[in-house]
Design a protein around this nucleic acid. Structure first.
Length: 198
DNA sequence: GGTAGGATGGGCT
DNA sequence: GCCCATCCTACCC
């Protein structure tokens, strides 16, 4: 199973998609395809990080070397190392100067399953990309992609031809200590591929 | 089914 | 020096 035609016929999202309030972008990303070369997954879980007033966001530290990408134009990747071992992928939203971003938290594997299984060292479909650290490994995404433009090139987000707005579940964000009660996690209701059911 | 603890390194105070 | 937007293993029901 290649999934090649299904992926290739999906239109790449343009910069305008990302140039909106971050919560709209986060919800809008559910059901879209994250594509890296021949590997692809459907986005089923995301979190919004809303900028400098959001204590859980990296942007709460203001403009630093690390957060520079967040202050740039939307539609770029922000990738950082967490816990010394894992990398997390975010997509920059809102106009330049407004540091909102969306953390991609889980994917349903769609294409390149053999490569995903090899990179992850596990076979079970539900375990390949059901977490922010897992999916970057499965997709072959790392800090080298920090700042990459996801509206063109090898790493893109695309709208599949059969996309319909999914039924969306909402919950607090996972694994944070600050602003822990803000309901900014969005996921595809009923998906077996999310990192947590609620 | 569940959870406690450790691996591991960079960013920021 | 402290704090992490995590994951896996070991161990216990």
């Amino acid at each position: 199973m290649s999934g090649g035609f299904y992926v290739d016929s999906a239109a790449v999202l343009a910069r305008e998609f990302y140039e909106r309030p971050v919560v709209e972008v986060a919800r809008g990303l559910l059901g879209m395809l994250l594509v890296h070369g021949r590997v692809a997954g459907r986005i089923v879980e995301v979190e919004a990080y809303t900028g400098e007033r959001d204590a859980a966001a990296h942007a709460a530290a203001g403009l630093t070397n690390r957060t520079r990408v967040l202050y740039g134009p939307p539609g770029h990747a922000y990738v950082y190392l967490i816990y010394g071992m894992y990398e997390c992928l975010n997509l920059v939203a809102e106009p330049a100067g407004s540091p909102g971003c969306v953390l991609i938290r889980a994917l349903e594997p769609v294409a390149g399953l053999a490569a995903m299984r090899e990179r992850r060292g596990v076979a079970k479909l539900e375990s390949l990309a059901s977490g922010p650290g897992k999916l970057t490994i499965a997709m072959g995404i790392g800090r080298g992609h920090n700042g990459a433009d996801v509206t063109q090139g090898r790493l893109t987000v695309r709208r599949p031809v059969d996309w319909v707005e999914p039924e969306i579940g909402v919950s607090p964000r996972i694994g944070i200590r600050k602003a822990a009660d803000w309901e900014l996690r969005f996921f595809v209701k009923g998906s077996r591929f999310v990192s947590a059911v609620r």
